[in-house]
């Protein structure tokens, strides 16, 4: 490389800078003294194996948390749908419970996702 050779030839790689006398003598000590104290609870560096174990544990916890959120969502959805079904049941109960066929009741039970006793209670209450 033409320009690089030119610079090398003319200027070399010498150092035009100087430092105050004895600067490097106590530099290490001065740097070490300027370091902030580390928190005594400072965690030692984790080994790769420990880090992997922590990572796996974190993944598991995240999966459990995600499953819980999913479950809560499904329960919420069920409750919401049950409310709607109950409203329908109440409206229909005005028609008269006696008019409902077994098939209708079966279909209501199925769609309301309620147990038999709860459904029975609602149907009974609507008559009063």
């Amino acid at each position: 490389m033409k320009y690089e050779e030119e610079i090398l030839k003319k200027c070399g790689k010498g150092n035009p800078f100087r430092v105050p006398e004895g600067y490097f003598d106590n530099l290490s000590q001065r740097i070490m003294n300027s370091l902030p104290e580390k928190d005594m609870s400072v965690r030692p560096l984790m080994s790769v194996a420990v880090a992997r174990r922590h990572h796996r544990l974190l993944l598991r916890l995240t999966s459990i948390a995600a499953a819980c959120i999913g479950l809560m969502f499904v329960i919420g959805l069920y409750v919401h749908r049950s409310d709607k079904s109950l409203q329908i049941a109440k409206v229909e109960s005005k028609v008269k419970v006696e008019q409902l066929s077994d098939q209708d009741v079966e279909s209501m039970v199925h769609s309301s996702h309620m147990d038999d006793y709860t459904l029975y209670q609602y149907l009974s209450d609507s008559e009063n």
Binding site: C11, G12, P16, F17, R18
Partner: peptide
Amino acid sequence: SYFDGDTMEGLLQ
């Protein structure tokens, strides 16, 4: 004062 500017190394700097 800690720089030698009269040399070629100084010119490069």
